[in-house]
Write a protein that binds this DNA or RNA. Structure first.
Length: 476
RNA sequence: GCUCCCAUCGUCUAGCCCGGUCUAGGACAUCGCCUUUUCACGGCGGUAACAGGGGUUCGAAUCCCCUUGGGAGUACCA
């Protein structure tokens, strides 16, 4: 039997990093098992679902490189993949359930239900449906419906315990009486999550359900439904939750929680996947930097952590930095086109210049946008007047260096040179050492201060050849 | 309230299933040193954890029980 997994988001907002992690796990599992990964849109909550969110989420998933084999936009043999387009299917199966005596029409009003619930809570009882409509005869129900009475469909919850084996939690037991008869079709004709989830997973031939732990209690209702349909349930694996600094389920108040925000901040999609993957799963070789393709054949549900994982921005940044460092010149240039603003002087330089520049700074940044600040420094004509620089300028040797370099740069500039080369810098250094008799700290720091206008930065022999000579002249 | 789930450095985790090799390993962060006549990168090293209590056992991070703490769910949301 080939593995079939799915990620089933509801289009009620942006793609959350928790959702991205779940999607990633499903995708990785499919890839590792040579299976199929399906995207299903759960849009039965009409009030909150929006088409634009669906598109946004698909775009974010695509950006992360998590591409589905079947889904609303690419089709597939078990469509439609949007629940709002599967309404007749849910209806038919609900009717079958009624025929088989597993479900019934319920005419209780929301107000009535709410009142009963309140009483139950006050009497500290578990608020469960009391089964008021359970014994209404089918014919009577039909009559009430045809005369316009709004009805929902309730499933008769069996009174027994349920046990299943979870890929992460092992043996999970739900004791008897945890849930009362629950609604599967709302009175407005739309199905309820736990119900359509079962229908879809069954009809789409899903073999493994990998989802967040918050769904664990839902599994009980779903197990009941599978049983009523006489269908073997899929394998379940409930992955630990993602939590924030306060140990609560990760949500908007913890800062950037949507994938799009990280995309915007120039994080690399591979780095995001890498980090997200490590939040609750561990590599058997204790490797911590990898690409999705490295995980084929390695990823499996045996190495999930049961406890919740805290999202740590600092480590994400480190992982992102590691991915940048591992990039070669071509990859860097490609990404630079994407992330460095079009008005940056970066884009006006030669390819050779760009390669050298990116290579020079790639080991000291955490994310791509950091390149911008370094590039801005190269092209900055201003001289930073901080304490250290004032000190450098106060040395009696510094004016000599300035005078010498000023003349040298003018000479080169007048002869049409636009960039100084490394050789030239060595010659300057030798001259200052030999003729001006300046050496050690005054020599190097003096040159740095005079040429860059700053007290720190990369090695001069790499940095100066990247700086246009006219800018050097201006600074001096 | 009720039901379910969870518990190793500040954080992510290895080890747990199949007790001894664990004076508990790695990574992020942090601190120190080296390297770099700067900053970073890099290298080396330090601080830092088996929630508590009972069992079982010659021996427990590992198996069992209790306590405590944390989390999730409790909808005609997903």
């Amino acid at each position: 039997m080939t593995v079939r997994v799915r990620f089933a988001p509801s289009p009620t907002g942006y793609l959350h990093i928790g959702g991205a992690r779940t999607a990633l796990y499903n995708y990785l599992f499919a890839k590792s098992k040579g299976g199929t990964y399906i995207l299903r849109i759960e849009d039965t909550d009409l009030e909150r679902s929006k088409k634009e969110y669906e598109e946004l989420q698909i775009a974010d998933l695509k950006w992360l490189g998590i591409e589905h084999n079947e889904g609303p936009d690419v089709g597939g043999p078990y469509g439609p993949y949007r629940q709002s387009e599967r309404l007749p299917i849910y209806k038919t199966h609900a009717e079958k359930l009624i025929e088989k005596g597993h479900a019934y029409y319920c005419f209780c009003t929301p107000e009535e239900l709410e009142a009963k619930k309140e009483i139950a809570v006050r009497e500290s009882r578990v608020p469960q449906y009391d089964g008021k409509c359970r014994n209404i005869k089918f014919e009577e129900a039909q009559n009430r419906i045809s005369s316009g009475g709004p009805a929902s469909i309730r499933f008769k919850a069996p009174h027994k315990a349920y046990v299943f084996m979870d890929g992460v939690r092992d043996r999970v037991v739900f004791p008897e009486g945890m849930v009362g008869d629950f609604v599967i079709m709302r009175s407005n004709g739309l199905p309820v999550y736990n119900y359509c989830c079962v229908i879809d997973d069954w009809l789409m031939k899903i073999t493994h359900v990998i989802r967040a732990e918050e769904h664990l209690p839902n599994t009980l209702r779903q197990l009941m439904l599978y049983e009523a349909f006489e269908v073997r349930p899929p394998e379940f694996a409930h992955v630990s939750l993602l939590i924030g600094k306060d140990r609560q389920k990760l949500s908007k108040r913890h800062g950037a929680t949507s994938v799009a925000q990280y995309k915007e901040e120039s994080y690399l999609p591979e780095a995001m996947c890498n980090y997200l993957c490590l939040l609750g799963w561990s590599h058997p070789g204790e490797v911590d930097i990898f690409k999705k393709t490295d995980l084929v054949g390695v990823f499996g549900i045996e190495r999930f952590q049961k406890a919740a994982a805290m999202f740590d921005l600092e480590k994400l940044q480190w992982v992102n930095g590691q991915h940048i460092k591992a990039m070669n010149a071509q990859e860097l240039i490609l990404k630079a086109k994407e992330f460095i603003p079009t008005d940056s002087p970066f884009h006006r330089q030669s390819v050779e210049w760009q390669e050298k520049c990116l290579d020079l700074f790639k080991s000291q940044i955490h994310f791509f946008k950091d390149f911008e600040t370094h590039i801005a420094e190269i092209f900055s004509r201003e001289v930073v007047e901080n304490e250290k620089l004032v000190e450098i300028n106060s040395w009696e040797t510094t004016p000599q260096i300035r005078q010498y370099l000023k003349e040298e740069i003018k000479k080169l500039k007048d002869s049409g040179v636009t960039f100084v080369n490394e050789l030239q810098i060595n010659q300057w250094t030798e001259h200052i050492k030999g003729e001006l008799k300046i050496k050690g700290k005054p020599l190097f720091m003096g040159m740095r201060g005079v040429l860059t206008g700053r007290d720190h930065g990369p090695e001069l022999k790499f940095l100066i050849p990247l700086t246009p000579i006219e800018i050097l002249a201006d600074r001096i």
